[in-house]
């Protein structure tokens, strides 16, 4: 499956993959989904599915189903009628429709609710009916448009696992749209991070998190510290390391950028959990404690490193440790080898 859409960006989604489009609202991720579903037509470009040109087909001929953000369940039909609607429209025999509806009710654990009107069930249940309705015709691709955003926190956690289970059990390709980075990281096989109508980076969650290609990606996913440095040399391409001189004047080995970057001033992205506090003399970076915030399980130290960048560290609280540090103290920061990432921009 190969999609080309929005701002000349190309995305290829593999068979049986849980693929997530992640980005802030207005980044074009929902538009991309609507183009695939057929509710919107791009002025140029193409969408292919198994070699089939989707853009030449009206939405009701595409083997693609959508789980809508607002669920869009038919209010004049029962739960079972909603689930059977797609199959009925495909003119499947009545017997087969009934059998599939029963299977789907079982799959989303809604058998008892089969004859209820959709207005008589809770939000979480509506969500499951919407899923069952979209899965019942066995689409080649299931599109999910922020389906969990209307649920409360606990239900959302449950549904995340449920969605993963459904995807594994049905073997259908899922294209999932969300603005919630945590949701994307926990559920996806691969993530496409989008911003302002274009795709900024595509990769598995770990790669996106550990090796953000650019400032936007690093900032949008998880917490990140940005510090200035000077790029001296790139040792090996792509996966390789880069030698940089930090603001303290010390040279360090960090992750090379994903694209060509000229030697000179660059930005380093360092995750808070990849750095720890040491005596000033032993630190790769040196700075002054600006703030200490106590969180119970851990303490966050805000350090202004020399050069002016703010660096936030998380320190897991253990009895008798780090309690002597106070605002205004000089400290050193140690960074794990290869933990820092040189950004493209």
């Amino acid at each position: 499956m190969d999609f080309t859409a929005l701002g000349g960006v190309s995305i290829t989604v593999k068979d049986n993959e849980f693929f997530t489009l992640l980005g802030p609202s207005g980044c074009g991720k929902t538009t991309l989904l609507r183009v695939i579903a057929g509710f919107e037509y791009p002025t140029s470009g193409s969408v292919h599915l198994d070699g089939m040109d989707l853009l030449s087909l009206p939405p009701y001929r595409r083997p693609v189903n959508t789980v809508f953000q607002s669920y869009a369940l038919f209010p004049h039909m029962t739960v079972a009628e909603n689930i059977g609607f797609g199959l009925e429209m495909l003119n499947r025999p009545k017997k087969e429709v009934r059998k599939t509806v029963d299977e789907m009710l079982d799959l989303v654990r809604m058998t008892e609710m089969a004859d209820r009107k959709t207005s008589e069930i809770s939000g979480g249940q509506q969500q499951r009916v919407a899923l069952a309705r979209a899965l019942a015709p066995r689409p080649k691709v299931l599109l999910l448009d922020e389906p969990l955003s209307a649920l409360d926190y606990k239900l959302r956690k449950d549904m995340q696992l449920e969605l993963k289970r459904l995807q594994a059990e049905t073997g259908i390709t899922f294209i999932f749209v969300t603005h919630d980075q945590e949701e994307a990281l926990t559920m996806s096989d691969r993530i496409a991070v989008m911003n302002a109508g274009s795709v900024r980076q595509i990769g598995p969650p770990r790669e996106i998190y550990d090796h953000p290609a650019e400032r936007f990606v690093a900032d949008f996913i998880g917490e990140t510290n940005f510090v200035g440095a000077e790029l001296l040399e790139i040792e090996g391409e792509g996966e390789g390391f880069a030698r940089v001189r930090l603001s303290s004047g010390i040279e360090a080995h960090v992750q090379a950028p994903s694209g060509p970057v000229a030697n000179g001033p660059v930005t380093l992205a360092i995750r808070p959990e990849h750095a720890w506090l040491v005596e000033e003399a032993q630190g790769l970076l040196k700075g002054k404690v600006e703030n200490v915030v106590y969180f119970g399980t851990d303490t966050h130290f805000h350090v202004i490193v020399d050069g002016g960048d703010l660096f936030v560290l998380r320190h897991q609280n253990q009895p008798g440790q780090m309690q002597h540090l106070a605002v205004g103290d000089r400290v050193g920061l140690q960074i794990g080898r290869g933990a820092g990432q040189v950004l493209r921009d």
């Binding site: 057929g38 009701y60 369940l73 979209a134």
Partner: peptide, 23 residues
């Protein structure tokens, strides 16, 4: 009428006429 219901109808393989009749 919520016009997303009409989109949902098209999405679930209903033709224009079927969407009119059934939704």
């Amino acid at each position: 009428l919520d016009f997303r219901l009409i989109e949902a109808g098209y999405d679930l393989y209903a033709t224009r006429w079927q969407v009119l009749k059934r939704v």
